[in-house]
Design a protein around this nucleic acid. Structure first.
Lengths: 254, 254
DNA sequence: TACAATCAACTTGAATACAAGAACACAAGA
DNA sequence: TCTTGTGTTCTTGTATTCAAGTTGATTGTA
């Protein structure tokens, strides 16, 4: 039997959804996102049940929710595993966010007023303050980072769009967390946020578009060379690209 | 006890995932998407269990999956209901698809060759043939419509992006189905597809962007005036817009 | 030694029984 | 007439038990 590490965050566990399975779900999801439960790691209904001193039923409920959200994979009669990160999916999410967020930020620039600038400024100050703190939790920075972006969606009345995109981030969230933890890229991210703020303020759309391009794929660039060795066991080994694109391009060039 | 209508499609039910709960999941999901189970409709674990002659356990499994995908809402100790359509979410999805698909189609135009044009043409022919058929199923047209769009994603190597966006369409899928069924808008949609094909062929990006804008929000325009009366019980009655946008704009104009 | 059959120890899937909370009808009282 | 309490009956939540499939070590055999 393999050992399972579970970080039971009492803060979230005590905000009990008044259902045991809901608590289990929250704890497991949080542990997966924070990479406490590693991609590919084995977990079993029995172990979790013992750990929480409950029966298998609520554990199974939590597992089913996590499965349909893509966090775990249930192999019938074999076992359950935390899903590996799918690099192709991550790239597609980055692309999607880049395209959408460019349009969102442009709209924000058109509607901009002092309140918005002040709001962003406040967030940036919090980022800076956090980094000046000794031994801060990476997840705190992650939260502020997310807030920086969601504020803009919120400002132009598209907060639900942000929420929907969040639902797609099953793999990307862990990827961003891995970037933050493994490369300690707080400073870089913060600087990029500052840069973006400047260009929002000056309404320089071209520069902002460029910022977003670099910013959103920054983690990919930082981690890229470490994916194939150091973190290879966290990623799927899918055949890279089975699209028609290569064929088409090749054929065109003949 | 309310009556539940379940259309058990034997074709899909017989393709058994060799798990009972998987079958139940497929059937219910299909019935929800095809509006056989109406938005807001009550369903219960016991009824479904009796209907399939199985215990409540696999039904609950299916329910949990459907819940976390947003198709149903489980109210503990009270009952389970098919989710209402959220118009705000639908608008956001339309926006997202418009922005993303414009970029996707532009890329496709840049990479375009005869194979792609042929592929699209084939799909368009199928659409036309289907419409010439007497009494065809709306879901068949829906399928071809989806295929028209997914082909483009596939062509430029972003099939996974299409799949991800599909996951967001919990409400939009049913909305599109409602449009097709209620307004019989096959002809219009087909004509728009033709128009888009023309502009892809002539590489007219500006026109194509305009096409996508109209095409993707066409259903919204067609159904809009019927949402508040005829189909009002299918939609959430959420307060329309609690964003900061209105405040900001108002303040700016003072 | 190589290999195949067997069996024990796991896994998740499903059925059943019971628990706990919500809703509603209905009767008793003011 | 209105209110309030009570009990029945519905709902989903959880625990327990059994079923069925997979894996891997062990044992017997050539």
């Amino acid at each position: 039997m393999e050992v399972v590490f579970i970080a039971v965050d009492l803060n979230s566990a005590l905000v009990s959804n008044r259902s045991v399975s809901g608590d289990v779900y929250e704890v497991l999801k949080s542990d997966i996102i924070n990479l406490v439960l590693k991609p590919g790691q084995y977990i079993s209904e029995n172990e979790i049940a013992k750990l929480f001193n409950i029966s298998r039923t609520p554990v199974k409920s939590a597992f089913l929710r996590l499965m349909s959200e893509g966090f775990i994979e249930i192999k019938p009669q074999r076992g359950t595993y935390v899903t590996l990160l799918d690099l192709e999916m991550i790239k597609q999410i980055i692309y999607l966010r880049t395209v959408v967020e460019t349009d969102v930020f442009f709209t924000a620039i058109d509607l901009m007023n002092d309140d918005m600038l002040e709001m962003i400024n406040k967030n940036l100050t919090e980022q800076k303050n956090l980094m000046d703190t000794a031994d801060f939790a990476p997840s705190s920075f992650y939260k502020l980072d997310s807030e920086f972006h969601s504020m803009i969606y919120d400002y132009i009345g598209r907060q639900k769009l942000w929420e929907m995109i969040q639902g797609l981030q099953v793999f990307y969230t862990r990827f961003r967390m891995l970037d933050i933890v493994a490369t300690s890229s707080f400073g870089t991210i913060y600087q990029e946020h500052l840069e973006m703020y400047k260009h929002i303020d000056s309404k320089d759309k071209a520069a902002l578009k460029n910022d977003l391009n670099n910013h959103l794929s920054g983690n990919l660039k930082r981690l890229n060379h470490r994916i194939k060795d150091e973190f290879s066991e966290y990623f799927t080994t899918e055949s890279t690209n089975n699209s028609n694109l290569q064929n088409h391009i090749t054929r065109r060039n003949i």
